[in-house]
């Protein structure tokens, strides 16, 4: 068994592109999924019954589906539904956004609900409107509980971007496996792929630990 690790270095440009795409997908998905998650959470908490039901249905649906299946389904259904020919990247982004929005909505809802009723009552007793109480009293406190979970979701998302490789999006996993197919250097490329994810993901995981320690809520 002869190993040739130089293939990794030779294809460093492609791997760099893959890494950049992975980051791009992660950032873009979060940029969409955070505001959308907030919107869905608010619908679920304060909307009228049909809006609440719709929001709840959406969240329950995507919490109970494997992401890889959503990716495939998006690939075949979205072009028909929207009438547009979406690139694999856009499709992947759509699938990831749908998925992460649902999780974020649950995170925001739980965060807001975790604030004691008494806090809202104290705010209203002062004469604040519900909106003011939310903005000035509930949200600042809820953020402390939400941030660690959001950080954890970010890291999961970073790993989940690897799943859009199945629809040929040129992120890190896809690129690595392409190079493997071209060079037949299976062990080297797959190990390099794992090592790259490790190098990128490990610090992120440690950062999440730090955030969780820092924002730990002492009741």
């Amino acid at each position: 068994m002869t190993l040739d690790w130089s293939v990794v270095w030779q294809h460093r440009d492609a791997l760099a592109l893959g890494t950049a795409t992975t980051f791009l997908l992660t950032i873009a998905t979060m940029a969409i999924a955070v505001p959308c998650g907030i919107a869905v959470a608010i619908l679920r908490l304060y909307g009228w019954a049909p809006a609440r039901a719709l929001a709840t249905g959406y969240v329950e649906l995507f919490r109970n589906l494997p992401l890889i299946l959503v990716v495939y389904w998006a690939f075949y259904v979205l072009p028909i539904l929207t009438g547009l020919g979406l690139s694999p990247l856009a499709t992947g982004l759509a699938a990831l956004s749908l998925n992460v929005t649902a999780y974020n909505a649950e995170t925001f809802r739980a965060g807001i609900n975790s604030i004691r009723r008494g806090q809202v009552e104290a705010a209203m007793a002062l004469g604040m409107s519900r909106a003011q109480a939310l903005r000035r009293v509930v949200v600042p406190q809820a953020l402390r509980r939400i941030l660690p979970v959001l950080a954890s979701t970010w890291v999961s998302l970073f790993k989940d971007t690897s799943l859009v490789s199945v629809i040929a999006v040129t992120e890190l996993a896809y690129v690595s496996m392409q190079v493997r197919a071209q060079t037949f250097r299976v062990l080297e490329m797959l190990t390099a792929m794992a090592a790259l994810y490790w190098l990128l993901g490990y610090p992120q995981a440690k950062l999440v630990d730090w955030i969780q320690r820092r924002f730990e809520v002492h009741e």
Partner: peptide, 12 residues
């Protein structure tokens, strides 16, 4: 003005 049993000061 209302004063609560659990004070309900805003902790932040």
């Amino acid at each position: 003005g209302m004063v609560f049993q659990n004070f309900e000061l805003f902790p932040h």
